[in-house]
């Protein structure tokens, strides 16, 4: 039957293209992993080898013992972790208040938050640098953490989500004599849980991967995050491809694992965030 063979061919084409796309997409990452286990100089051959002849951990040893990658990864973990926790606190309380509490000037203030969504970060960078210098926060974790403590997008996402919380629930608690903080911590936060996870993953990944601002604020190597240090190392070690691949592996691995673990929440957040336009 022509219809049957037609749909079988279509099935082959669709799945063939998908597999080809997936292989092509993953190939650079797979090659990075493979080359990170190669002997120094091994990757610089024609034709380029796909797998290490004798797998070695030498590059990782060099990376942590000589290039100080452990310190940079720790910096990244502390900065991204602090930003995630603190910005959750700031954005959740503000987003909830904008959604559920009545106060003078609420709607006008929220309009300003929406307008802040449109402010390009790069425009603010030069004065922000001067402000940070004045606050003595250059070359410190604070220089990266403080400006990221609250985001317009975070407040917006929490507000949209918190609007679905039944007002009756909050009013009932109030009649029972619960204070506003108790209501927020005991009743609202548990209901916001899916949003909290989503926001946490989005924030952690964005802060871990952030490059331009940490590059500007953290010129002193001791405080640099993994991406900034890696960019510096890659300029020093242009020839040491295997070493640099190991550096890329340890920089990417934490965020890739986090994404794989919390994929559903992350993609959900991405869809919510993109609707802001």
């Amino acid at each position: 039957m022509s219809v049957g063979t037609d749909s079988r061919t279509a099935k082959w084409i669709v799945n063939g293209l998908l597999v080809a796309g997936t292989v092509l997409t993953l190939l650079p990452l797979a090659w990075m992993l493979s080359a990170s286990f190669m002997q120094p100089g091994e990757a610089s051959h024609t034709p380029p080898p796909l797998l290490p002849a004798h797998a070695t951990l030498a590059n990782y040893r060099e990376l942590f013992l000589r290039a100080g990658m452990g310190r940079y990864l720790l910096n990244s973990f502390l900065i991204a972790g602090a930003i995630t926790l603190a910005s959750l606190a700031f954005n959740l309380s503000a987003g909830y208040a904008f959604a559920k509490l009545r106060f003078a000037g609420r709607d006008r203030l929220f309009q300003i938050v929406l307008a802040a969504l449109l402010v390009p970060l790069q425009v603010a960078m030069m004065p922000l640098f001067l402000l940070m210098k004045w606050l003595h926060l250059i070359n410190s974790y604070g220089g990266v953490i403080v400006p990221a403590l609250a985001t317009a997008l975070g407040i917006y996402l929490v507000r949209q989500y918190a609007r679905s919380i039944p007002t009756d629930l909050i009013d009932a608690a109030r009649i029972d004599g619960a204070g506003e903080w108790t209501i927020f911590l005991r009743i609202v936060l548990p209901l916001l849980r899916p949003m909290i996870v989503t926001l946490a993953v989005l924030t952690f990944l964005a802060s871990w991967n952030d490059f331009m601002w940490p590059l500007i604020v953290l010129s002193d190597q001791a405080w640099q995050t993994a991406p900034v240090a890696l960019a510096g190392l890659s300029r020093e070690h242009v020839q040491d491809n295997e070493l640099m691949m190991a550096g890329s592996v340890v920089t990417i691995l934490p965020v890739l694992l986090l994404f794989l673990l919390l994929q559903r929440q992350y993609l959900q957040g991405l869809l919510l965030g993109s609707v802001k336009g």
């Binding site: 993953l26 490059f211 890329s248 965020v255």
Partner: peptide, 14 residues
């Protein structure tokens, strides 16, 4: 989707 979550500096080196 995996490339989206990777660090741009690290994958630029690859």
């Amino acid at each position: 989707f995996a490339p989206v979550v990777t660090t741009v500096v690290a994958v630029a080196i690859i």
